[in-house]
């Protein structure tokens, strides 16, 4: 047995849920501790950038990166982790495909800042003050990272070896990843460590295979039949395009699938695939009828790309057209 493995956990534009998922593996963490030294984990222990910079290049066995890449400091972190790690794992939906932070890509950074510092109802900022990237404090110059034009998925910035999907990733797949490292039986590069089919394949609800939706409803406004397919009950569910491996956790609990595992291997674009799935279950003979039914879905792009706007085919706001609903 060689020396102990070395793991690093790098947080970025994320909510912290991924870090909690790491702790959530319970007693397995003891096995991880037996197997590996954690050489960098700023969320849990007092690590600074210079600790990571001091390590030899490629000395970390696996670098886990969670969160989207939103500012230039995140880019620095991503590149640094790549340099120091033999393998880099995009940990969680944000690192894998942009996640929730990339929903901001519907707007420009200026529009987001305007919303955040001027027009949010709880903000009182009559002078239009904005955070400054540099500030001369009596103690010395203080700096803030610069927000980039949009949020990126990790593999749009650095080379990524594996992906652990989910919001947050599930314990069993984290354990599977750690075991793969321990046994040395690594899957091919680029593998998404989860299932290979769609959530519908794991879903216990029954499907009738018939077109039957004449109206879409929001899930909290109706009582759904726990035995039947949510989509067929007119409740938007991302199952048909979403990678399985979660044991249909949300759907089993009475909630619709939100697509956090990202698209399956056969799906290139979640939004397009879901638009297609919806079309195949909707009963409409005329365009007007279809428009009426689909009109119930207020924010299809936001729903379909909830976790993956940065990796969608169109990818980014083009600024040519503004929907009226703004």
């Amino acid at each position: 047995m060689p020396d102990k493995f070395k793991f690093a956990f790098m947080p970025s534009a994320s909510c912290g849920g991924c870090e909690i998922a790491i702790v959530d593996i319970d007693e397995v963490i003891l096995k991880v501790a037996e197997l590996a030294d954690i050489v960098y984990w700023p969320t849990a222990l007092d690590f600074k950038d210079h600790h990571l910079e001091a390590l030899p290049d490629g000395s970390i066995t696996v670098g886990f990166f969670n969160g989207a890449v939103r500012n230039d400091h995140d880019v620095h972190h991503a590149k640094l982790l790549r340099q120091k790690s033999a393998f880099v794992v995009a940990f969680g939906a944000c690192a894998q495909m942009g996640g929730i932070p990339s929903l901001g890509n519907f707007w420009t950074t200026e529009e987001l800042a305007h919303r955040m510092y001027d027009t949010v109802p709880s903000v009182n900022n009559p002078e239009g003050t904005r955070p400054q990237l540099k500030y001369d404090a009596p103690e010395g110059e203080l700096t803030l990272p610069r927000a980039m034009d949009r949020a990126y998925a990790l593999d749009q910035v650095i080379d990524v070896d594996y992906y652990l999907p989910g919001c947050p990733p599930q314990v069993k797949w984290i354990v599977a990843a750690v075991e793969a490292v321990a046994s040395g039986e690594l899957p091919p590069k680029g593998t998404v460590i989860a299932g290979t089919k769609a959530v519908c394949d794991e879903c216990p609800r029954e499907r009738s295979e018939e077109k039957q939706v004449t109206e879409f409803k929001r899930i909290h406004l109706v009582e759904n039949d726990p035995e039947k397919c949510l989509l067929e009950q007119g409740i938007m569910c991302c199952g048909p395009a979403t990678r399985d491996g979660c044991e249909a956790a949300c759907v089993t609990a009475g909630q619709a699938c939100r697509g956090c595992f990202g698209p399956t291997d056969n799906v290139n674009d979640m939004g397009a695939k879901l638009a297609s799935a919806i079309a195949s279950i909707t009963v409409a003979d005329a365009q007007e009828e279809a428009d009426r039914i689909l009109g119930h879905l207020d924010d299809p792009a936001g729903y379909f790309y909830r976790f993956g706007l940065a990796k969608s085919m169109l990818g980014v706001q083009r600024g040519e057209f503004k929907p009226e609903a703004e």
Binding site: F106, A275, R318, F321
Partner: peptide, 14 residues
Amino acid sequence: MLKKILGQMGLNPG
């Protein structure tokens, strides 16, 4: 539906 998505991505549905 697709046109609506195009619109949200800032592309002219036309």
